[in-house]
Design a protein around this nucleic acid. Structure first.
Lengths: 336, 336
DNA sequence: TATAAAAATGACAGCGCTGTCAAAAGCGCA
DNA sequence: TGCGCTTTTGACAGCGCTGTCATTTTTATA
């Protein structure tokens, strides 16, 4: 049997107050006497009342939904971000609308334009967060958002992870192991973090007075196949590297495959390092030395910042920077 | 500058019709003259009108949102399902609300109970779809849903994938290669598909008149670690198997690691097969022979069936069965 | 041409809530 | 006790749409 869902009127009648008072209680507004509050809550409980979101949305012109914009082929990353975001959403009674999209799609702007009234704000992940048209759209329409990106855009709050520092650390770690020819595979050229990771690699070399050698660097695209072909190229060179640092884990997996092809033992003859600490990395053979990003933290933080924004409490400082961390496993060791 | 969003009234005024007619056009209702329809559409276009979902929801008592319930640690699977589901959702103007949950949580029922008014229906993935309390809740409250599961529940429509047949095929394939001692690692005991995959293994053995040997079978939990320990057990036995068929890819990765430990060459000394065709499988070394499930298809189908349901067009036959497919890669070969 | 039936359109209530503003109740203090 | 203040509560409009049902227009048929 389907019993009709109880409304604010039912609760008000049972509690002997006006519907407005019920509304106040459920919106945690001040200036409601405790005894009144209790009456209302009790009544709501007996009736198993739940506010009707649609009605609330219509009346308040709020959706209680936030949108998540992303174009990330890495499902582990996406899932983890979703998870962290949902945790915070639930605290605030918000729902999450996921919107995977193609950053290079010409329809992107229309698409998001249509979404804008369905959500109160957006969390925009890399690399979509670096799309200037999109940022402009959000800005012009005064849409609340938090960007996960390595670079600022206007006054938008943004969350960044110390990609450069982490890449620097990883490079330094490889140098500390005694490597002198450390290869590097750059990530997808459209991804902001690709540049930062490369910058980190370069800064560590520089600090150690090691010349940056273009022959040790190859341009990948963040997928295994590109990692494989880059590694083939690097390993075929006359002065082959004794370590290869790939800008993400799938590419590092490609390097591992190439090492197999070349009959190189990892890590004795070739050290391999990745970035992201995906499950892939843990499950590789040998398990991959990599960099762990605090993904859940990023997601939680981004969501919290957005919630603050939506509640009008915008912060002074709009950048929050988190640090990534080295995870040393068996794929790296001293050379020779 | 933020211009106020235009409403159905604006469109009606500009088109010179009543708001009800505008409503009809936007809901694709019949009985609107083409010329009227055109006028309305033109007016809507100039005003850049978009129906207000909240208002529509409130008035129609529909949410235009479907919920996706899952508890799946495999992010590739989840992401792919989300993707397929979203494709269909967009066609129908629906949004997707994801709700990862813990199948064994005591609060699950409350949680879903609270969600029920926020969505028009649910897509329930395994293993949540096999939770009897949840199914009962959905049934009692007459909530529309489509289950992705290997078994029926009452009259609910359900989508299943031929796990058993696929496992049978894979086993047969290994036998065809000449293996006589084929090990098997069972999946998580709470997962319906674990049983089916085991059943497929057994049926293939039986057809070939090969005795089912308990010593060749180990109980895993769908994760790499359990695959590793199961493989250690199987490989330590006096009559070690020449092939191991793990019920999913992470466990097969564990088997691969164990093979490394035991100094066994894959596939010359040990063939390894997985299930699911996760990216893991493609990226393993050697690349893993496995079973590909039509995940996107499952998701699309499930969503379509749900949409049919919501529109009152319930089908006669409520089960849709899709077939999985063998993917043969380099991790399997003839023994010896 | 008249008439019935079908198709197209509109008037209006109301979905369940929040915002606004006014009214009532409670409080401190002379 | 009464005054002015603050705190608490309520009445009511209206958010933008859809459902119902009445009305008008068109079409088919006699």
């Amino acid at each position: 049997m389907i019993t009709k869902r109880s409304t604010i009127n039912d609760v008000a009648r049972l509690a002997g107050v006006s519907i407005k008072t019920v509304s106040r209680v459920f919106n945690r507004e001040p200036n409601v006497r405790q005894s009144t509050r209790d009456k209302v809550i009790a009544a709501a409980e007996t009736l198993n009342y739940r506010p009707n979101r649609s009605a609330r949305q219509l009346a308040s012109n709020l959706t209680f939904v936030i949108g998540m914009l992303y174009d990330n082929p890495n499902s582990d990353y996406v899932t983890e971000v979703q998870y962290g975001c949902l945790q915070v959403c639930r605290e605030y009674g918000y729902n999450l609308l996921i919107h995977p999209c193609q950053a290079d799609s010409p329809d992107l702007i229309d698409e998001i334009g249509g979404l804008q009234h369905q959500v109160d704000g957006f969390i925009v992940l890399q690399p979509v967060s670096d799309d200037q048209r999109l940022n402009q759209l959000l800005l012009e329409n005064n849409i609340a958002c938090v960007r996960v990106s390595q670079r600022p855009f206007e006054e938008f709050p943004w969350i960044s992870v110390g990609d450069k520092e982490a890449a620097d650390q990883m490079t330094e770690y490889l140098l500390d192991l005694g490597h002198r020819r450390v290869g590097f595979i750059i990530g997808h050229p459209d991804h902001g973090s690709s540049h930062d990771r490369l910058a980190g690699y370069r800064s560590a070399l520089k600090r150690r007075d090691i010349r940056y050698d273009e022959n040790l660097v190859a341009q990948g695209r963040f997928d295994l196949e590109s990692g494989l072909s880059c590694a083939r190229k690097l390993l075929s060179s006359t002065s082959r590297p004794t370590a290869i640092f790939a800008s993400n884990d799938p590419m590092a997996m490609g390097v591992l495959s190439a090492a197999h092809e070349f009959g190189l033992d990892v890590p004795r003859q070739l050290s391999v390092a990745g970035f992201d600490d995906s499950p892939l990395a843990r499950h590789a053979w040998p398990p991959l030395t990599t960099v762990r990003q605090p993904i859940t933290e990023v997601a939680r933080l981004a969501t919290n910042v957005l919630m603050q924004q939506l509640q009008g409490r915008s912060e002074g400082d709009s950048n929050h920077r988190l640090q990534a961390e080295l995870v040393c496993r068996a794929s790296t060791g001293s050379p020779g």
